[in-house]
Design a protein around this nucleic acid. Structure first.
Lengths: 144, 144
DNA sequence: ATGACTGCAAAGACTTTGCATCTTT
DNA sequence: AAAGATGCAAAGTCTTTGCAGTCAT
């Protein structure tokens, strides 16, 4: 007998929060987001539901950024950009490796490949700009 | 004035341990590996040196697998396969995205892209085999 | 001698989990 | 009423860090 799944408004709103943003949220982000409308929400519930949604295939994990696991409600194939400076994650919808790649690797290496992730790293616009400002300040200070 | 860097046998052996394996070790793995020959080694020292090596560009982090950060002493471009079952990480030396990809993304999205990672997920041979055995057992049990 | 490196243990950050309670069916 | 979902807080895991002692230069 399979385990029954019951409705819960909190669960529904947690999923909606993830699906309604493109910021690739962490558990903490979801918690803070829903706290105002769900005063009694517990962080443990957010974690449990994130695990639940991933098992159900409703969301995917896009890995750990700055120590926190990040999730994505978009399931269509796409790549990500991670800013190593501020931790923001951006979708790159136009960057998508060949769909046959998984099968190619499966055959070539004899592995049961299920999916792949293509993730770019660097600095987002605002961090790149901030850093150049900071460098200018340092240059000004050292030349002063 | 730049900070001086001094020799340490422990540091050298930590680096050698990472460079001498293709298992993409975690801090704990390195610690256990060196413990016999370095009885006084501390896990904190391993962590500190991993950070140091990454800053020096001697190793790279390949992300968090099963809660533990994993490192790679191979710096030439290549992809990875992560077994979501046992956590093992394999090199895929023949799978390497176009070298211009970083620049393409930089231009297309206006980001300062520094690098990218292509990671495949699935089950390694032994886990796929073990699971099929396990499934057989379950089938046998339920039909018994 | 200076200051870099380490051991140790405490602290920190993130996530999981046990149990009593509340809610859905 | 039965069983799933949640709140709370404790526990668990991995990693970082402060401080005193050690070692390389």
């Amino acid at each position: 007998m399979e385990r029954a799944i019951r409705y819960s408004k909190k669960r529904a709103d947690i999923l909606a929060a993830i699906q309604g943003t493109n910021c690739h949220p962490s558990a903490e982000w979801v918690y803070q987001q829903l706290k105002p409308t769900h005063p009694g929400l517990s962080l443990g519930t957010v974690y449990r539901n994130l695990i639940f949604f991933r098992q159900q295939g409703l969301i995917q994990s896009i890995g750990v950024v700055g120590g926190q696991e990040r999730f994505d409600g978009t399931l269509t194939p796409h790549s990500h950009f991670v800013c190593d400076c501020c931790g923001s994650v951006l979708d790159l919808p136009d960057i998508c490796p060949d769909g046959d790649l998984d099968q190619t690797v499966s055959r070539q290496y004899g592995l049961a490949v299920q999916r792949h992730e293509l993730t770019f790293h660097g600095q987002c616009r605002s961090c790149a700009q901030a850093q150049s400002h900071h460098q200018n300040q340092i240059e000004e200070e050292s030349s002063a």
